[in-house]
Design a protein around this nucleic acid. Sequence first.
DNA 1: TATTAAAATGTAACTTGTTTCATTTGGGTG
DNA 2: CACCCAAATGAAACAAGTTACATTTTAATA
Lengths: 339, 339
Amino acid sequence: MTSIRKVSAIAGVSIATVSRALKTPEQVSPGTRQKVLDAVKEAGYRPNWLATSVKTGKSKSIVVLVPNLLNAFFQRIIEGIESAAQECGYTVLLGDTQGRKTLENEYASMVLTSRADGLIQLDHCFPFSDNDAELARSIPMVSVGERIESQHHYPFIHLDNYSAGRALAHHLISYGHVRFGAIAGQIQSQIYRDRLSGFKSVLAEENIDFPDSMLVGGSYTIEEGIRGVNELMKHKKPPTAIFCFNDDIAIGAIHQLRSLNYKVPKDVSVVGFDNIRVSEFMHPPLTTIDQPAYEMGVKAVEMLYRMMHNQELLRTREIMPFTLLERHSSGPINRSTSQ
Amino acid sequence: MTSIRKVSAIAGVSIATVSRALKTPEQVSPGTRQKVLDAVKEAGYRPNWLATSVKTGKSKSIVVLVPNLLNAFFQRIIEGIESAAQECGYTVLLGDTQGRKTLENEYASMVLTSRADGLIQLDHCFPFSDNDAELARSIPMVSVGERIESQHHYPFIHLDNYSAGRALAHHLISYGHVRFGAIAGQIQSQIYRDRLSGFKSVLAEENIDFPDSMLVGGSYTIEEGIRGVNELMKHKKPPTAIFCFNDDIAIGAIHQLRSLNYKVPKDVSVVGFDNIRVSEFMHPPLTTIDQPAYEMGVKAVEMLYRMMHNQELLRTREIMPFTLLERHSSGPINRSTSQ
DNA sequence: TATTAAAATGTAACTTGTTTCATTTGGGTG
DNA sequence: CACCCAAATGAAACAAGTTACATTTTAATA
């Protein structure tokens, strides 16, 4: 690797002048500037990014913790993050944690070792190891989708999950459904509580019973959708409408309903959440909640930027709007088969 | 940020000893080691990763250029890369290029500025800008899926796309099909040429005509599948079997065939490529080629590792095996409707 | 107890750029 | 031509580690 000293030797100037010619060209006379530029080209010089960062103390990078890169919803958020980060001169380091605590700890600690200046968490847990917890106190961090559990002072951006749950319930009730099932994703998260309580609140208002046995699930995967349907449809009076906590679950659910010879939506209505890319192209196309994932990513970077530059945050919590997309996986109850 | 000097002050030893106590503890007496460890804890010290890297001249990172993070096939490769990289102590920097040249240049140049020690390219183009091309000559780089165009000295890992194309053709011919269509992804890539010529070679052997008008496409997207079907089914004698160059295209194709009131596979058989996650859960489940994407990622890291450590490569080209998964989007020709 | 090799530790140089402070150069004015 | 301020440049300190080399300490042997 050619260094700045080599360039300075070729150009016949000091290393300080080379540095200035590249970083603050207006501080250098046109003649020297040209000499330096020529020398740079001749030497094939590229400044060592590490050296610059170690001197300035800023890595100009942010690390993003993603529980699962396969999740199409997260991908949209990431796109938003990357585009916004680039806008303000930051590089994004993607940490695919695969839900593993050790991996998460490791990526998070990048922010403690000057490898990154800030952190965006897409999961709901506090990403630092117990060892690092103390140090991490004052780190710039924002979370998207979920609120950092037991560390409520970190700013976060999320959907109005409660209202979305209500919207889905209203949608299904308007089709005449009265027997509901739900397949949840990760339990013990704010998202879970909000979506569920929103959904339940409407049922309660309408005096519709929703026994605990009709709530199953545990992870945001296709497999969970399959398992969930198997469980729900075992009941003597199975649900005629199923609320899946994300589109992956819904895809699995619809697949399994078909395997069990139920027609969707004729026999069972299914609704999802997130509006991932394929939802629209499934058969039937999925009724779901569209989240402004991209915008959420952008917002996250904006907030993080302010934190990294010690600027005051306007607010520590950002609630984003959603849209209910009524497609064809939900429909009117089939009075003949729903006894 | 607390530095190593602070720790050395607390522990009452030199900074060299602190460094040794942490990096090569066997070189330090147990007593001092403990003193240092205590001081580290007291100071809340984490070594500055940038400083370490700048001194050792190694970032222990590799950058991966992904044309499109949304592509489920790439994701599998990335998983393999990340797992293998972690194994040998490297961090993965994901660069989502979104097919944009400037972004690609920027991420690629990380390897020229000591931000990364090596590069894995998932696209087929030479990722450096013209300016950097010279410097990039001897950079550790391997490509997965595609061969770096016009720079054939870089090692690469790919599928036997030619044979896979043949396998799909045989599969469809065995069902009695004789009128074929194909919806390609990115033209002008080795993958395109290999899959197509493999497919065509079988048709030629069987004296089946495959006019140019039956080959459409241009990108690996759902939308391309939709467009492609619209185009192909316009013909007086439309195909009864369509070879989609990846699963996304196939998803779009099936969706659009259904919109045009064709039954899959009764009226038209559709085959895909890649075996992404949802393929299995589509309706009908997709007949496709399974690529060992994860293993390809692992292999890529292995090769890159050798290059980064100046070890001889066993071979500069790695061909991976595939599996034809016969599911339900392909089936026997329907003699009554295929006139 | 003296000798000596091995182990432990410290000093200072080194990695590469940036930046402060001092010095030199340049051009305009009196 | 001397003077002065500003612009341009250089020397050296700095960021935060690692490491070669020198020095001190320890422990074992004679």
